[in-house]
Design a protein around this nucleic acid. Structure first.
Lengths: 341, 341
DNA sequence: TTGTAGGCGTTATCAC
DNA sequence: GTGATAACGCCTACAA
């Protein structure tokens, strides 16, 4: 069995063993083309034999770059992390994967309130840039990062402010898709449950997409507003209740997020509406819980793999001063049981 | 407005501005008590004025420690990251939070197959230790990390092998809790859907807890085995189908994971069984989707906040050579609608 | 209480 | 192609 105890082996040790200079070792291992094949081979073997690994701290100190991206997840203050929208977790994963594919590591932190806001990754040379993923209406966080990050390399998802370097779902196309789907399935009095003023920029865009599709069909869009500050599901439920109580006729509901739609679905069912027969329901996000509702929720899903790649690509382009890549993530309709055939 | 462009400011610059030596700056900023208050103040002011931040790479190179923990999430090969059990995501979050509370950063990577297995964080001085969280039967990954990590600082969650430095839910207590609950609610012919041979060590423990509770009540435990290699939900559904087809009488099902239980619930409902009236169903994990099933799933939930803390505490103890902390995470029963009153 | 000086392990710029 | 040599920016004995 190989000795596994960690003793610091430096490139000098490898150099000695291979009978070359230390700088040759560095070059050989870095893949420098000026090194001859036989020499490289000798170096590689010596390195393996000694179980040598580059000390990244020394390398980074010298290079001035870290090969690391910081990823900040902004949560709602006090929110149970398990209740975080699963899409964000998927996005976290795909971002890590995309970063790895481009040769970067990811330093992750979850931040929720001013006491723990911190974003000086670049100044501290902990990372070459920063991805900020915001899950909600945490305006304090956006204020902090917006101010702090000026002049540094960063991208964000969920920004309330169009002047930030954002990447975002194609919300308008998605909402149009959802609305057209309901129209094709014969629904006419389609109500949107959402908000046009929420700091969640995407809610406004989704409403706009819905409204445009309605108008295209010669129908009047209608927005049933959600109350601020509640959990999404509760917002959906209360909005559905208000809609029912208002007496306004409707035969379909488009929730600007799945959780809102699921809340509405619950309320509708509880009040005796048959979904999808009496009322159609469509959400937006593609969360997994939608598969388990009764009936399962028809929804619009962003491609989170693409989202992660775009975030990473954009950030790396910023770091390297290259031309930035696209910022809109494609979406697709997932037809399940909450809209009739 | 403050100048935000990043120019490298070193501790020498601060020293010059404050009229002290560089080492005094280092000490003052590190909180060394031998520095006089007036001097510290001058240094702090100079640092702020110059917008100085310590270069972590240089500091780490010098110190030999990184202040970073690596977190490896092992996924199923080819699995859509969105389908990852949300508990693991919650655990990821709480681990990051716990690490932050102890002054560590977290370097995250998702790994699924031999091409991307990599765990030399410590040798490369990228981290002081490693947390491996395994979600499934990815035995190749466990082989890799088990071999690699010998002699390094690490802890893991989901280990198939008791000789690894694991932290784990109190599965036996949880399964006992679940089974007793069903017994109290009047179910008698309770079947466990799961496995005693799965590399998921916890499945075996959950079965054991169930079996013990059954025997305590003078009842015969029975295990309906799942097929290997399928998605959990499918495993649950097929096992339920097999159980029904076998003709064996049963009035309750304990799934060793929520997703298995949800699959079974779906099949039972499809075959005309009324849950919870004819058949009770209980799962294990507390995934969010369980709130949305019909009826909502009664389950056993691990405290993922504690889980994250225990992982971090244990790893830090290993790094510092301290006595290790407990390795069992407490669980609680969450009664929802899939067991009768 | 503070200053001086050495070194952490690389990478990069010169020469040869 | 390869070998000296000089940084990279900090922390920490040791000296004063």
């Amino acid at each position: 069995m190989v000795e596994k105890r960690i003793v610091r082996v430096t490139s000098f040790d490898v150099a000695e063993k291979a009978g070359v200079s230390q700088s040759t070792v560095s070059r050989a291992l870095a893949g420098d083309t000026s090194i001859s094949e036989p020499t490289r081979k000798r170096v590689m073997e010596a390195a393996r034999a000694l179980n040598y690994q580059v000390d990244e701290n020394a390398a980074r100190l010298r290079r001035g770059r870290t090969g690391t991206l910081a990823l900040v997840m902004i949560c709602r203050p006090g929110e149970d992390r398990k209740d975080l929208n699963p899409f964000y977790f998927a996005l976290l994963g795909s971002t890590c994967a995309a970063a790895a594919a481009r040769g970067y590591e990811v330093l992750v932190s979850f931040q929720d309130s001013p006491e723990n806001f911190w974003g000086h990754y670049q100044e501290r040379r902990k990372a070459d840039g920063m991805i900020v993923i915001g899950t909600s209406e945490n305006t304090a966080a956006w204020d902090y990062f917006g101010e702090l990050a000026e002049g540094t390399n960063w991208v964000c998802w969920g920004a309330p402010n169009d002047s930030f370097p954002w990447v975002r779902s194609d919300n308008i196309a998605g909402a149009t898709l959802a609305t057209r789907h309901m129209l094709v399935r014969g629904y006419r009095q389609i109500v949107c449950i959402g908000s046009e003023t929420s700091p969640q920029r995407q809610f406004k865009e989704r409403f706009d997409g819905y409204a445009a599709a309605m108008q295209d069909a010669g129908l009047e869009p209608f927005l049933q507003r959600i109350e601020r500050g509640l959990p999404r599901e509760e917002q959906g439920r209360l909005a559905a209740a208000a809609l029912i109580d208002s007496g306004r006729p409707f035969d379909a509901v488009f929730g600007v997020s799945d959780e809102i739609a699921l809340g509405a679905l619950k309320e509708l069912t509880a009040r005796g509406f048959k979904v999808p027969h009496d009322v159609g329901v469509v959400g937006f996000d593609g969360v997994r819980a939608g598969q388990w509702s009764t009936p399962p929720l028809t929804t619009v899903e962003s491609d989170f793999e693409v989202a992660g790649s775009l975030l990473v690509d954009r950030l790396i382009a910023t770091i390297g001063g290259e031309a930035p890549s696209p910022r809109r993530v494609p979406v697709r309709l997932v037809v399940r049981g909450s809209t009739r055939d």
